[in-house]
């Protein structure tokens, strides 16, 4: 089995995680492809190959082989690990502020409705809206600028139907805008209930060999609400989007990228699914 782990900056943690595991067990062949999200629009799929523009070719990292024309053949891979875009548990796709409350209070959402929300990555339903354009995302300063890369990602998903394991990006740190979402005991109960259903749906995608299989971060990585990552699993020194100055430690904290530990946990989860 030959695997391609694909994404932008979040590929780094997964790569680090697999490297940690590789010292303990024999792994399938995995190549890692990461490109700055600013250059995602500069990628195309042509004849089952990733074709990189001149600008993209100057801004990507790849552990496999590339030919001289900046083409990366996808046909040599059996499986894609997709480490980009929103995690299924991302609250901005689930909860919206209403005009009665200061912060965002959760709604109890049925499994049928959640299924519709989570189906947004199905090739037939993939639109630019899937990836951006949400005011809540922009307010949270977490998502990318509106992009059109969904078009070729759609092609990628079609090309690898039933062979894509979608892990998305990590849920942001518990220190990331902690007051946006209501954290009352009742709200926590609702988050948990919805998250439980999302986890059921994710498991079903694997069990039913769906077009895209979703792998979620295990609950122990997350805080009580289930959509923020415990800070110890996040990178603390990388300057990037979602950064915050920590007054206590006088350093810039990266609140949106997982660290090696996060990567190794996710790598184990991925391997468990692939072996099953």
């Amino acid at each position: 089995m030959k695997i391609l782990c694909f994404g932008a900056s979040h590929v780094a943690a997964i790569k680090a995680g697999f490297e940690i595991i590789s010292s303990q067990e024999k792994l399938p062949i995995i190549d890692f492809f990461g490109i700055s999200s600013r250059f995602l629009n500069e990628v195309q799929i042509v004849d089952d190959c990733l074709k990189l523009s001149k600008y993209a070719a100057e801004n990507y990292r790849f552990t496999g082989n590339t030919n001289s024309d900046n083409f990366i053949s996808l046909t040599t891979y059996d499986t894609i690990i997709f480490a980009h875009e929103s995690n299924l548990l991302c609250p901005q796709y689930l909860y919206k502020k209403n005009n009665l409350y200061e912060n965002i209070k959760p709604q109890l959402i049925s499994k049928g409705c959640l299924q519709q929300v989570l189906d947004r990555y199905s090739p037939a339903k993939l639109t630019s809206q899937t990836f951006s354009h949400f005011n809540d995302l922009r307010e949270g300063k977490i998502d990318l600028a509106p992009l059109s890369h969904y078009q070729w990602i759609n092609q990628l998903f079609k090309l690898f139907q039933k062979k894509i394991y979608f892990i998305g990006r990590p849920l942001p740190s518990e220190k990331f805008y902690p007051k946006i979402y209501c954290s009352s005991p009742n709200s926590i109960k609702i988050y948990k209930s919805n998250n439980q259903r999302i986890r059921e749906i994710a498991k079903e995608t694997v069990a039913k060999n769906s077009i895209i299989k979703f792998i979620l971060p295990p609950e122990y990585l997350l805080t009580e609400c289930g959509f923020r990552t415990q800070h110890k699993y996040m990178r603390n020194s990388l300057s990037s989007r979602g950064q915050l100055h920590d007054a206590n430690n006088a350093q810039i904290m990266d609140l949106t990228h997982g660290n090696d530990l996060y990567g190794s946990v996710m790598a184990k989860e991925i391997l468990d699914q692939l072996i099953d």
């Binding site: 901005q92 689930l94 909860y95 919206k96 502020k97 709604q107 929300v117 947004r120 809540d136």
Partner: peptide, 9 residues
């Protein structure tokens, strides 16, 4: 008071 999930088309 029961807004749709933003990700619901």
């Amino acid at each position: 008071v029961e807004p749709a999930p933003p990700g619901l088309p």
